[in-house]
Amino acid sequence: MSTTHADAHPKFLQHHFGTAFQQQESSKLGMWLFLLTEVLFFGGLFCAYAVFNAWYPETFVNAHKALSWQLGGLNTMVLIISSVTVALAIRSMQLGKKKLTFNLLAITVLLAFVFLVIKYFEYSHKIHLGQLPGNLYTYTGIEGTNPHLFFSVYFMLTGLHGVHVVAGIIAISWMMYRVHRGDFSAEYYTPIEMTGLYWHLVDLVWIFLFPMLYLIG
């Protein structure tokens, strides 16, 4: 990229934008569109869930008892708190408090890990019992036709969500590094804001998943 006109622009402003405001607005719109694609991406799986829930309602009710609503509920709390901390991080960057921003982001990452650890215990329990998707399903304790379909949907949905949590951890860690490096200020914090939006989406998806999978019936 050409650096000849850097003097006319603040450092963070890319050459093809006229003003910082224009750049920020563009990022925001872009991010919202991206979030929309994410919603539709999960939307496909929600449809699959709806179809099989309608086909085999009893199986789904029976199968969901295999999930622990306590652990799911705990995870819901963890994610909601992490959403709050990431929002606070943005707020504190707006006020120019770099140290605080860094710490709040760190707490968010920590909570994301807590979520994954809890998820790990849930998964390993199911793997142990053979409550697995499709062909791999070996458990016999659930009544109803095709219980493996419930676990297919369960693992696909939570697995995909888990991938998003991991991506979130990477993104937020990157933001921590950039805060540390001093990229941001009270005037320029768009990337943190975008990362925060993404993290809210991850949270939101879970808020749908939790009642759908853990609380049917």
């Binding site: 699959a48 099989f52 998707p133 499709g134 062909n135 791999l136 095709n146 493996h148 379909l149 297919s152 949907v153 693992f155 696909m156």
Partner: peptide
């Protein structure tokens, strides 16, 4: 479906 036969 092909990799692990999720059955959907």
């Amino acid at each position: 479906e092909r990799l692990m036969g999720v059955g959907i």
